[in-house]
Amino acid sequence: MTTKAVGLAPELFTRIRDSMDAHQDCRERINKLSRDITQQSKKLIFHLLRVSPTNRAAIFQEAERKHADILRAVAQIAPELQGSNRWRYGSTFTGGLQEYIEALALWVFLAEQRLITLAEVESRLNEFSKAQIVHIPVGPIDYVLGVSDVAGELMRYAINSLACGNADEANAVGVFFQQLYSAFVEFNPRLHPQMTKKVQVMRDSLLKVENACYQSQLQVSEFPASRRPPVLDLDQPSAEARSDEF
């Protein structure tokens, strides 16, 4: 080479390097906290699935405590997600956020047999910031993708309920689930690359619930209450003991 190769505009490239490094570091931090939120949300989901008619109050109380843990992680991310940076790092943050929305959706369904709204998700997510100095908006697509994930949990919960002899609860899940699915098939699959897969997974879970309810109905018809052998009259034993199977 005939040159000294000193590099052009060294100050400019130093500035560019520092800025790109800062951007990468920021993305790493968000990625890490997003994974933390995913883990804690999964724990909250497993905890919620242990609910039974006898322990509801205690389960929901403990859920509040676990929720507060998640918000501590959210509070750490929040400063990095201000303004346009919320959408700049959206794809990094969405994993944790979707898992969190899934947990909230399951919680609200178990407590009130209804779907959590987007506004409620946003308000719960931002509970960490009492003063509203920082506010993390939730995108409609995050909400839709997060809620779609609750399908698998509803399926587990319905099968659990049936296994515990609580056919009414399983049927209630089935009806709610069917309504949810009919809404999802109305969404344009091109909204998000994951959309088609999520709706497919949702359908698979729904079919499992529908089949289980069908089987249970057949069994009930074979053995009307008057002729039901005592062995089928389980009368809802502890769901806790059985929930780990799924």
Binding site: M1, T2, T3, A5, V6, G7, L8, A9, P10, F13, T14, I16, R17, M20, D21, Q24
Partner: peptide, 21 residues
């Protein structure tokens, strides 16, 4: 070509100062 070679070598050296992911 000589001018270009010198310029591109310097430019390349500037690019190398970046930590690209």
């Amino acid at each position: 070509p000589l001018e270009i070679s010198e310029f591109v070598a310097q430019l390349f050296s500037s690019f190398q100062s970046l930590n690209l992911k």
